[in-house]
């Protein structure tokens, strides 16, 4: 038991040392893929909205392959889950509201 406790700092240090390069790689990807939208991208965002609306109106969303539809649903779900992450941050609790 005592030896396990004595090993703990070195274990934590190796864990940090191993995780650091991976975190760096994550950050390099995140800086591109998770970046907040820039003001210069507003036209593209508007175009995205318009595309979504026209596909909803014309029924073009029905003419997709199963693969495309699956991917779109997964992307939509991912975007939706950001709302729940935001809710958890806003209520400062993981499960339920802590009143």
């Amino acid at each position: 038991m005592a030896s396990a406790v004595g090993k703990l700092p070195s274990l934590v240090n190796t864990a940090i040392a191993q995780a650091r390069p991976k975190f760096g790689i994550f950050m390099k990807y995140a800086k591109v893929e998770l970046a907040p939208p820039k003001l210069s991208e507003i036209p593209q965002i508007k175009a995205g909205f318009a595309k979504l609306l026209t596909s909803a109106k014309t029924g073009a969303w029905k003419n997709q392959t199963v693969k495309q539809a699956t991917l779109n649903v997964l992307v939509g779900a991912e975007v939706l889950f950001w709302f729940y992450i935001g809710e958890c941050i806003g209520k400062r609790h993981i499960v339920g509201y802590n009143v």
């Binding site: 998770l34 970046a35 907040p36 939208p37 820039k38 991208e41 593209q44 965002i45 175009a47 995205g48 909205f49 979504l52 992307v75 991912e78 975007v79 939706l80 950001w82 709302f83 729940y84 992450i85 935001g86 809710e87 958890c88 941050i89 806003g90 209520k91 400062r92 609790h93 509201y97 802590n98 009143v99």
Partner: peptide, 22 residues
């Protein structure tokens, strides 16, 4: 950019919603 806009706007809307209801 549309997807990233959706992510960030829903995140902020979620924070506001959570704080308001809290």
């Amino acid at each position: 950019p549309f997807i990233r806009f959706g992510r960030w706007s829903l995140l902020t809307v979620g924070i506001a919603y959570g704080a308001f209801h809290q």
